[in-house]
């Protein structure tokens, strides 16, 4: 870990402007992913702005009947919130399937959205990685590489990493939006489906956030009802990243929404796939995973995604 200077911010606007003015500055709140990466010098900030005192830790109702989740609300607090459990059950389910109790107590809403991939080649600085070191190449695409966990769709010849968040998959299925403040003090709202960028030739650029732009909240539209479920498939029963996860909101008439985790560089959802939900899991996946580009080792994820959804539908 490289040396860094440290300051505490008390206001979101102050945090954003400081981040833009200090070279190599980064925000830190929970720190559960950033410190992990700093120890390995995958992240090398020169200055940390501690934003945990900016007061963004509330969950409040919005005027339209939705919910505004402060950027610093912990994963535990968000999952345990009475309204979230009642009206947005898929979000509680997704949050509680991720990480561990200790990590969820520290991890924040914004930090969870911004966590980096868990691709083992990204994590090993002796291996070339276009996300870590643009232009170096992608060891995960090498002959004989280990790619079982990695992405099958939305990936590129430069990067096949997945986004590891469970929470983001639920937020995606709930049509969440991200609220930010820019270094100039302006606010903007970014729908989650526009928040992440696909890797293309620049897998190091993961979101549409501009330098210094600071997430203040995530908002949820009014509850959509329906039966909400999240099935995270993994090798061991807990404390592991997803091979595939499926977020499902299903209405009584059979219509609904589906998003996938563990398969793409972002939570993966397509309108055409949602529309096919009444026709069953195969119909959904033939649209949701159309054009997938798996490796030999992770091609099973296609079948797994379909069967996972089929299982969820079979359960009613």
């Amino acid at each position: 870990m490289r040396a860094f200077s440290y300051e505490r911010a008390s206001e979101p606007a102050q945090a954003a402007s400081r981040a833009a003015e200090i070279p190599g500055a980064k925000f830190i709140a929970g720190g559960t992913n950033l410190l992990d990466l700093m120890k390995l010098e995958i992240e090398t900030p020169m200055h940390l702005i501690d934003v945990s005192g900016t007061g963004l830790d509330g969950i409040t109702a919005t005027e339209d009947g939705g919910l505004r989740i402060g950027a610093l609300v912990s994963n535990t607090d968000l999952a345990a919130n009475e309204r979230v459990r009642r009206d947005y059950g898929v979000l509680t389910r997704a949050l509680m399937s991720g990480a561990s109790g200790q990590l969820r107590n520290k991890a924040t809403t914004a930090g969870n959205l911004l966590q980096r991939t868990r691709c083992p080649y990204f994590y090993d600085t002796a291996m070339p990685c276009n996300k870590r070191s643009p232009g170096a190449g992608c060891a995960a695409l090498g002959q004989g590489a280990f790619s079982r966990q990695l992405g099958i769709i939305g990936t590129s010849d430069a990067c096949i990493a997945t986004h590891p968040s469970d929470m983001a998959v639920a937020l995606r299925v709930l049509d969440a939006e991200v609220e930010t403040i820019t270094p100039s003090g302006a606010s903007r709202t970014i729908p989650l489906d526009e928040f992440y960028r696909l890797p293309g030739d620049t897998p190091d650029v993961e979101t549409v956030l501009m330098p210094g732009e600071f997430i203040t909240a995530v908002t949820l539209p009014p509850p959509v009802g329906g039966r909400q479920a999240y099935h995270k498939v993994r090798d061991r029963a807990s404390y592991a990243f997803a091979l595939v996860s499926v977020a499902l909101v299903r209405q009584a008439d059979g219509s609904g929404r589906v998003a996938l985790g563990g398969v793409a560089p972002q939570p993966w959802r397509r309108a055409a796939a949602d529309a096919a939900l009444p026709d069953g899991a195969n119909a959904v996946m033939s649209r949701l995973l159309d054009g997938a580009s798996p490796t030999e080792e992770n091609a099973f994820k296609i079948r797994l995604a379909e069967r996972t959804l089929a299982g969820m539908l079979a359960e009613g």
Binding site: R118, P120, Y121, Y123, D124, M127, A139, G142, Q143, G144, A145, F146, D235, R236, A237, S238, Y239, A240, F241
Partner: peptide, 22 residues
């Protein structure tokens, strides 16, 4: 990794030992 000759999942997140829930 057959090309680089090493164990890729070289930490306790990548190498999955049994946890309580198992």
């Amino acid at each position: 990794d057959l090309e680089h000759g090493f164990f890729v999942n070289h930490d306790l997140a990548g190498y999955e030992v049994a946890v309580h829930a198992d």
